[in-house]
């Protein structure tokens, strides 16, 4: 192999290695942050299905102007300020708790299941009228609550 070919192979190899590591790191970050999932299926009505990587939500939370969070805080009123520390702590503490079923309601017309699973809060509501499936990464909620807090 000529020195020029060797150099090209080395540069190409280095480029591939850096690309692979970058893609792997991005994949790991997206996987680690999880997905925000909202699925609503109404009987004879609309179907809504949204799946967003939580890293995008985190980025969006940072990009949203502070004014929006200030308005949200103002709408929540003083009542939110009273429960804010408890709500923030609840989401943070939930991260440390092992996976568990928080609430399970099984009725004739409706089934509700709220569980913590792998760093996410999963909510399933299944009734005659609609079917709802929510997956909320706990860290996503914490970042939104943190931003709300800073908007005070």
């Amino acid at each position: 192999m000529s020195p020029d070919t060797k150099r090209i192979v080395l540069i190409a190899g280095g480029f591939l290695l850096i690309s692979a590591v970058t893609i792997g790191a991005i994949g790991a970050t997206v996987f680690d942050a999880g997905m925000l999932v909202v699925q609503v299926r109404e009987e004879g009505g609309s179907d809504v299905s949204i799946k967003v990587p939580a890293v995008l939500v985190h980025a969006a939370v940072r990009l949203v102007p502070n004014r929006c969070f200030e308005e949200a805080r103002a709408e929540m009123g003083a009542e939110y300020d009273r429960v804010r520390p408890a709500v923030r702590a609840l989401w943070r503490e939930l991260e440390d708790v092992p996976d568990f079923v928080l609430v399970e309601v099984a009725g004739r017309d409706e089934q509700v299941l709220v569980r913590k699973q792998s760093g996410r809060l999963v909510i399933d509501v299944d009734s005659d009228r609609e079917r709802v499936h929510l997956v909320i990464p706990l860290r996503t909620v914490d970042s939104i609550l943190g931003r709300l807090e800073r908007a005070a």
Binding site: A86, E93, V97, F100, E104, V105, A106, G107
Partner: peptide, 15 residues
Amino acid sequence: ERVRVNLPLELVSEI
């Protein structure tokens, strides 16, 4: 209706 609620006491104590 059938209802089940499970709460970690440590979490309740913290909150």
